[in-house]
Design a protein around this nucleic acid. Sequence first.
DNA 1: GCGGGCTGAGACGTCCGATGTATGCCGCCA
DNA 2: TGGCGGCATACATCGGACGTCTCAGCCCGC
Lengths: 223, 223
Amino acid sequence: MAVTDEAIEKIKGMIVSGALRPGARLPKESELAAELGLSRNSLREAVRALSLIRVLDVRQGDGTYVTSLDPQLLLGALSFVVDLHRDDTLLEFLAVRRILEPAATAAAATRISDEQLDALARQLDELGDEPSVEDLVAADLDFHRGIVRGSGNSVLCSLLEGLSGPATRDRVWRGPTREDAVGRTLREHRAILAALRDRDAEAARAWATVHIASMEQRLRATL
Amino acid sequence: MAVTDEAIEKIKGMIVSGALRPGARLPKESELAAELGLSRNSLREAVRALSLIRVLDVRQGDGTYVTSLDPQLLLGALSFVVDLHRDDTLLEFLAVRRILEPAATAAAATRISDEQLDALARQLDELGDEPSVEDLVAADLDFHRGIVRGSGNSVLCSLLEGLSGPATRDRVWRGPTREDAVGRTLREHRAILAALRDRDAEAARAWATVHIASMEQRLRATL
DNA sequence: GCGGGCTGAGACGTCCGATGTATGCCGCCA
DNA sequence: TGGCGGCATACATCGGACGTCTCAGCCCGC
């Protein structure tokens, strides 16, 4: 194995073993390089790689630190992966979302707070009845994020965040939105919110499924 | 933004735009470095980072290539992320698996081939009634992999692969397996297989849920 | 006494050039 | 024709030098 890969494994090992806790500061590059028995150049490659997947956080002029290791942070790198995919695979990503999002929405029905619900309602009201596509896309993102967050599972939350990234979203809303996509989206959002207010998990799940399915339809249409 | 980060974005851009197709070979390091306007050292950091998340494949003495970009490959890095987490978050990862795996199993009920079913059955038979824990763990991994693969969604497949990685698995089977964990696992596997043979999606989903839940129970017990 | 600006040490960022090592190809020889 | 060896190529690693950014502590003025 290459020295750089070894270094990656060793640093990972130090974190897993607890020698390096979240937020901890690493020895400076030259010291760590000596400690691990490689050159600073090669060590930097390892550090850079771990930094891309948000395990390490390097701050110029300061030092290198272990991140919080929040799943939210780590799975953020997922959208990078999704970005790299093209039409056919995008549908598979959406299929996964179609499984997760209804489950998350159902979970939220019993766990989301009234304050969070009020915030979502306010947000929908502010959007009005005929928003621009850009506004709607942004609101859509916030809406789903708000609900999923209400599920109380941060891993689920960040996974969906990644799956709903720009790649998918742009694709769904690209080109002329046929028929009444905007109106339909708004109606579905309201229906989901109503189900959550009723604390009706099954209705929430069903509406979420419908919502994703209609999104899937539109995605298919652009292929 | 640092030059290395720029380079990462540019390479990613070249792939997304189609300038670099899967399997394509990159210009040699010195040329690409010149092209992107940075030193070979800094470029190498970018390449190494992309190679960690399996976007690039570098072969010493040969060249650097874009990988197949299979979701399977890219999400493989996910297990790296899961490895870095500790007890509390592990439960959240398992909760996600509890959503995905039943759905995947239900999908497999209608899509998996008879040959694949036969292979799973053979494997269960070979294991016998009182396997060692090591053998069981390996068989368990294969069993779930085989089913999820039968769902026909490669993204789902690799996502679950990552979630079921060594970190979770070791934790579940660590320590004295209380009660009849081995026997119970075997019985549940047989039940899942029977449901698949019957092409009964709902039964398959239910048994998969039961199976993951019992795994979750054991994980909680070790915390 | 207190606050702000300045300065210097420390740490990462970038680059250069040299040398080691694995791979693939091509020509030579049996 | 087939196998073997050597050469060209490209990545792997290294050491050192210099730039740039941060932070903290000192000094000065209010």
